[in-house]
């Protein structure tokens, strides 16, 4: 197998950032270095990892999804209401929501609309639907889902297993199949892909549907962890997912993405906040410092990219 150096550089940076953060956290808080500690540190990262993958699928085709936070919120609200009380209806709603995501992709392709505007609009739609489904905080996540995210597999915490699994499946799908090559090609050079006989409409719809699917997983796991929901629960995920995906080596221009990098990026975003909390940094500074960490890592990536002879 030929080693893809660019790929390696792209993924090694978030991996190094993650290792550095983990090291710093273990040093500040040795209690974190246990099964239960890692579990507490990382369990909230599972939905963020899914949301970041969703963002990455949309980034693949060069779009940006500003609606993912609203969508995850909506899914969480459906999970604690319909999915709990009438599972069949709940499943139908979630499937329809994924269909709607694909339809949004189709709309963007057919009318040649800027994705950033359409998805921003959709974020309000999802938020509105979430309020309709769950007007006041509450609801109860189905027990099987709570039990699923509370699983304590022997040896390795669930969050780590999930991150590895999600990263590998995403990697195989996008980087190791010819279908994945077409999806990525659609972002890098749409004209060449259309000339080769592929339908951009189908490709965009597929990617948006995949994003919707990941969003559903994010909402389900989030509701499983919190056991209950409210209509503001995941609004922050939009920015977290963009930051995580970009940190992990995806690019706004499309075509260049890395599922493993996105997973690592999501973990870095989760841990950065914990790291700052352990430092007991004044909260007024935390957002700024989180941003500074992000800029630092991105700057490092630009340097590494140059060293690797990219561009």
């Amino acid at each position: 197998m030929i080693i893809d150096w660019r790929e390696l550089v792209r993924t090694s940076l978030p991996a190094l950032a993650l290792a550095a953060l983990l090291g710093a956290i273990f040093w500040l808080q040795p209690r974190a270095m246990s099964y239960q500690g890692l579990n507490l540190l990382l369990n909230l990262s599972i939905p963020i990892v899914f949301a970041t993958l969703a963002q990455m699928f949309v980034l693949t085709v060069g779009d940006l999804d500003l609606g993912i936070g609203g969508f995850v919120t909506f899914v969480a609200c459906v999970t604690v209401t319909w999915l709990a009380e009438a599972p069949l209806v709940g499943v139908l709603i979630l499937v329809a929501a994924i269909g709607l995501y694909a339809a949004v992709g189709a709309l963007i392709e057919l009318r040649n609309l800027p994705a950033i505007v359409v998805t921003l609009g959709m974020s309000f739609v999802w938020f509105g639907l979430a309020v309709i489904v769950l007007p006041s905080p509450g609801g109860r996540t189905p027990e099987w889902l709570i039990a699923a995210v509370r699983l304590r597999p022997p040896g390795i915490p669930l969050a780590i297993l999930a991150a590895v699994g999600i990263g590998l499946v995403g990697h195989l799908l996008l980087m190791r199949t010819s279908f994945g090559v077409v999806l990525r090609g659609a972002g890098g050079n749409p004209r060449a892909i259309t000339r080769a006989g592929w339908s951009m409409l189908q490709i965009r719809m597929t990617l948006y549907a995949l994003a919707g699917l990941m969003g559903v997983f994010a909402g389900l796991t989030l509701a499983g962890i919190t056991t209950s929901a409210d209509a503001n629960i995941a609004l922050r995920y939009t920015l977290l997912s963009i930051a995580g995906a970009i940190l992990g080596g995806s690019q706004f221009t499309g075509g260049r993405v890395s599922p493993i990098g996105a997973v690592l990026g999501a973990l870095v975003m989760t841990l950065a906040a914990s790291f700052l909390a352990f430092l007991r940094l004044n909260p007024d500074w935390q957002i700024g410092v989180q941003g500074a960490i992000l800029i630092l890592v991105l700057a490092l990536r630009a340097v590494l990219d140059r060293l690797a002879g990219e561009r």
């Binding site: 808080q29 540190l41 909230l44 919190t226 629960i233 922050r236 989760t270 935390q286 957002i287 989180q290």
Partner: peptide, 25 residues
Amino acid sequence: APAFTTAENQATEQAAQIQNLILQG
């Protein structure tokens, strides 16, 4: 008995904050 305020008024952030407080013993 220190006070911790989340940087943003979001439930997911406060959930993470609580888990960090558990970790800090």
